[in-house]
């Protein structure tokens, strides 16, 4: 999919320090494939005991729909489990907006075509306010120009993304394709390094 001129409504999760154990609890990490984790996304917040849905949780509120998750600062902290990115993607999210991301989560998201967009605390607060006022609020994302826009208010903000990762996302490349293409340089490095552990 392309992130150019991409527009969606949002699901607000105005909580700080959402850790990857909440995104996907460890007991659901027993699978050996990448698929199917969306069913257990935010499992312990989405469900009360057993299979009873927690009606207070935003994913169970039909008013809020969309492929953009908007979350409080320091989203994705804790465990390095890439299953967190897989679960968000499998559930149907394409973008996560926050004012701060944990490092490993951010890398995992980018490696799975899930776009983490970091905005200022003020801009994030504005998005939350706007969603509260109008749950159908749309956010537009232009990856090429690195712009995120609250459509209704015509408010925009630039976001940072590493040029390489941007190219990967825009073209569907993977780090591994690039690294493999550098094999000669890697072998030369191994031969010539000052101190070798091999």
């Amino acid at each position: 999919m392309s992130f150019n001129n991409y527009t969606s409504t949002c699901v607000p999760l105005p909580m700080e320090n959402v850790d990857t154990d909440q995104i996907i609890p460890a007991r659901f990490l027993k699978a050996t494939s990448r698929e199917g984790f969306g069913d257990n996304l935010f499992r312990d917040w989405r469900y009360l005991k057993g299979e009873t849905k927690n009606e207070d949780f935003v994913l169970n509120n039909p008013i809020y729909q969309g492929e953009i998750l908007v979350a409080g600062k320091n989203f994705g902290c804790g465990s390095s489990r890439e299953h967190a990115a897989w679960a968000l993607d499998d559930y149907g999210f394409k973008v996560v907006i926050s004012s701060f991301f944990a490092d490993i989560f951010k890398g995992n998201a980018l490696n799975n075509g899930l776009l983490p967009i970091q905005v200022s605390d003020e801009f994030l607060a504005e998005i939350f306010e706007q969603i509260e006022a109008n749950p159908k609020t749309e956010i537009k994302i232009d990856l090429e120009s690195q712009i995120v826009k609250i459509v209704e208010k015509q408010k925009v903000m630039n976001f940072e993304i590493n040029t390489f990762k941007k190219t990967c996302l825009l073209n569907g490349y993977d780090d591994i394709d690039y690294i493999i293409s550098q094999k000669e340089a890697i072998e030369a490095f191994e031969k010539n390094r000052a101190f070798s552990y091999a």
């Binding site: 489990r81 890439e82 990115a85 995992n108 390489f164 780090d175 591994i176 493999i180």
Partner: peptide, 22 residues
């Protein structure tokens, strides 16, 4: 440092990772 599974694959395939210096 800890990495995700995509990077586990990269490191197994190439003994290298693309990393921004913290």
């Amino acid at each position: 440092f800890g990495i995700g599974t995509s990077q586990v694959e990269q490191a197994m395939a190439t003994q290298c990772l693309l990393q921004n210096k913290p």
